[in-house]
Write a protein that binds this DNA or RNA. Structure first.
Length: 432
RNA sequence: GGAGGGGUGGCAGAGUGGUCUAAUGCACCGGUCUUGAAAACCGGAGUGGGGGAUUCUCCACCGUGGGUUCGAAUCCCACCCCCUCCGCCA
């Protein structure tokens, strides 16, 4: 949500930022609605002020016993009341019109975000490790012999449809181990608070983080009008919605492990094989709520938390800054971490870490009170995957595949798998 | 699902038709006192919006949306949420 006062006093700057995102200028349309809106408000409020005056006088006349005077005023107010209501309705219509428009405009990119139109314009800022070398031709995760018994797309399609999977045995356990490992590191080393949240949320919550009103088709809605979360960023960030917190309360650092649901409308035909892109997947998410002055540092900290997992798992990755055209709706700056997938011979997104500034906070009305100041400020909100569990599973499987069709297991996961060091080509754990 | 109770500022909590311009307490901010702090005392302070300007003014907001009334935090209706009990249930 954008600050109308900012647009009013900096229309060209606002349009320039939109232009960097590849969007047409909007300030003229916005300001003309704003002008009409203020005109209606002025009329309605002046009229209401007059009525309020008369009401007061009527009450006074009645208490004094001047019944004639009271009747005269009462009649006069009755006659004009409908006019007042009409004016007020017009004013509130203009208000809704302006707000409706502002809610559909994406966040303005930070000045340091590279301008571009697609993922091809993203800028690599870091590369860690070398693409894994194999003595044989590595395959995609779903082709690995050790994986096949534990990753069943056919049965999942029967009971749910396309883009679902059933994991079982060693693969299900490895998947679970990854999530546990991430949660433990976040809570024990990164200082995040573990949170378990609903995965069904109300429309206001989806509006707060920006999924609504514009991207309704990307998520699933229940018959009662609740929404399945596409990421636990949604409930985690909305924890502070509607609140004014003391400065001391910040920063809040949350993490949650949740199911995520996405309709994947618009990605038909993309990543159709394997479990890279599913309607339902698991993700460990990080969310930070900070003071406005702290969000940039927090953004870097959060990125490090995510990168660190790949280093511990010894998975090669690169980090990119998304260009203006590839950034999500609510972000002012986003880092993507892409992990090396030997089966595809590509780096693929495994984490996205965004600073939303005060964009979501305005939508959810989340503020903090700085010390020694009377006014309140909007908090800044940040979110990042740490990590996408399903994709982490894929990355481990592909990078740790062996010539015999088995899979070795990263050292850091062994404690979560009763010390198992590998999965045999038949899908059974060794040493368990 | 049924019955009952409730939702008021950052928090607690009073207020059942007319100076509510929402009491009081806590927390907060400024000041006095103090070497400093605490305590005490004095004062200030809600959120959003409109107009005019830097001394101001007006409108809206007491869960949400309607309604009654000259006038609604207060009365009526619907919905949402919370609590207690009953029923059902993982």
């Amino acid at each position: 949500m954008h600050d109308i006062k900012y647009i009013r006093s900096n229309p060209e700057e606002f349009d320039n930022h939109l232009n960097r995102r590849g969007l047409d200028p909007m300030s003229e349309e916005i300001l003309s609605i704003d002008k009409a809106r203020r005109e209606k408000i002025r009329k309605a409020e002046n009229f209401r002020a007059g009525l309020n005056q008369q009401s007061k006088q009527a009450g006074l006349a009645k208490s004094k016993g001047s019944l004639g005077e009271f009747e005269r005023l009462r009649a006069s107010i009755s006659n004009t009341k409908e006019d007042a209501q009409k004016l007020e309705q017009e004013a509130s219509k203009e208000n809704r019109k302006l707000e409706g428009l502002l809610l559909t405009i994406p966040n303005l990119p930070s000045p340091d975000v590279p301008v571009g139109s697609s993922e091809n314009d993203n800028v690599e800022i870091k590369r860690w490790g070398e693409p894994t070398k194999f003595e044989f031709a590595p395959v995609e995760h779903f082709e690995i012999p050790a994986v096949k018994p534990g990753m069943d797309f056919t049965t999942a399609a029967k009971i749910s449809g396309s883009r679902f999977v059933i994991l079982s045995g060693s693969i299900a356990k490895l998947h679970r181990a990854l999530a546990q490992f991430m949660l433990d590191v976040h809570t024990e080393e990164n200082g995040l608070q573990e949170v378990w949240t609903p995965v069904l949320v109300n429309p206001e919550t989806m509006l707060g983080t920006g999924q609504l009103p514009k991207f309704a088709e990307d998520s699933y809605r229940t018959e009662e009008g609740k929404w399945l979360i596409p990421t636990s960023e949604v409930p985690l960030t909305n924890i502070v919605s509607g609140l004014t917190v003391d400065e001391d309360y910040l920063p809040r650092r949350y993490c949650a492990h949740s199911q995520c649901f996405r309709s994947e409308a618009g990605s038909a035909g993309k990543d159709t094989s394997g479990m890279l892109r599913q309607h339902q997947f698991e993700k460990v998410e990080m969310v930070s709520i900070t003071k406005s002055s702290e969000s940039e540092n927090e953004h870097d900290r959060m990125l490090r938390c995510a990168e660190d997992f790949l280093e511990r798992l010894k998975l090669p990755y690169r980090t990119v800054v998304l260009c203006t055209g590839d950034m999500g709706f609510g972000a002012k700056k986003t880092y993507d971490i892409e992990v090396w997938l030997p089966g595809q011979e590509k780096y693929r997104e495994i984490s996205s870490v965004s600073n939303c500034g005060d964009f979501q906070a305005r939508r959810m009305n989340a503020r903090y009170r700085p010390k020694g100041v009377k006014t309140t400020n909007f908090v800044h909100t940040l979110n990042g995957s740490g990590l996408a569990v399903g994709r982490a599973l894929i990355a481990v499987l592909e990078n740790y595949q062996q010539a015999d069709g088995g899979i070795s297991i990263p050292d850091v996961l062994a404690p979560y798998l009763k010390g198992a060091t590998s999965i045999l080509p038949n899908g059974e754990f060794v040493d368990i």
